[in-house]
């Protein structure tokens, strides 16, 4: 494992922890899109089917379990926790799941490395992860005023994606036969979706003002 991959995994982990911390301590999920969180839970559930079939390393298994448990906990908190759920702004978070899930699934049926259930689910999870942040970005645009933790959450997710790209470049030059078009293209699309957010995030950071997105 290279340093980019490790740093990428750690920022990914940090993003989830920031979110859980916010929900757990402030007992609020204001500004968080339940739609995005549900999509991430679906992403992990479909991608980590190999937990049952392949063993890669203890690190790999543990991280997969952490992402599965944390994503489903976040969804549970927002939907069912008696205090947290009251802060969920249902009327603003209107993105439709199937609008993203269906095209990703159809694309996975057509473009995949192998036509098996496991492969198609894995490919589907990559396509879905690429666009799963969209409901969150739409919600941020709508509410415009973003609290620090939500801003940091999205920033850490974007950092994780950028580090994964550096990891792929590194692996391409250091490992033989390391070519994964599906992973790369969907990963690139995913990272580009953050570009706009990043721009405003850095602007607010540079000028030392509260992050606010233009309408």
């Amino acid at each position: 494992m290279n340093i980019f991959r490790l740093a990428g995994d750690m920022t990914h982990l940090a993003s989830v922890l920031v979110l859980l911390l916010k929900i757990h301590t402030i007992k609020s999920c204001a500004g968080i899109s339940l739609k995005t969180q549900e999509l991430y839970a679906l992403v992990f559930a479909t991608r980590y089917l190999d937990l049952f079939t392949d063993y890669i390393s203890l690190y790999n298994t543990l991280m997969k379990l952490i992402f599965l448990v944390s994503s489903f906990s976040i969804v549970w908190y927002i939907r069912h926790h008696k205090i947290v759920r009251r802060s969920y702004d249902k009327d603003q978070d209107t993105f439709r799941h199937y609008f993203l899930v269906l095209p990703c699934f159809l694309l996975a049926l057509v473009i995949n490395e192998k036509f098996t259930v496991k492969e198609i689910m894995w490919t589907f999870s990559l396509y879905l992860e690429a666009v799963a942040i969209l409901p969150q970005l739409v919600l941020l645009q709508r509410t415009r005023n973003i609290d620090n933790l939500t801003g940091q959450y999205v920033f850490l997710l974007g950092a994780y994606r950028s580090l994964y790209i550096l990891n792929w470049i590194y692996r391409y030059f250091t490992e033989p036969h390391y070519v994964h078009w599906i992973t790369w293209i969907s990963g690139l699309v995913q990272t580009l979706l953050y570009a706009d957010f990043f721009y405003y995030y850095f602007q607010s950071w540079k000028n030392n003002v509260k992050l606010e997105l233009p309408a």
């Binding site: 991959r5 995994d9 990914h12 890669i56 790999n60 994964y164 990891n167 992973t183």
Partner: peptide
């Protein structure tokens, strides 16, 4: 022939 790398990423 070399098998493709395992999917060891998260």
């Amino acid at each position: 022939y070399q098998a493709p790398p395992v999917k060891d990423e998260l």
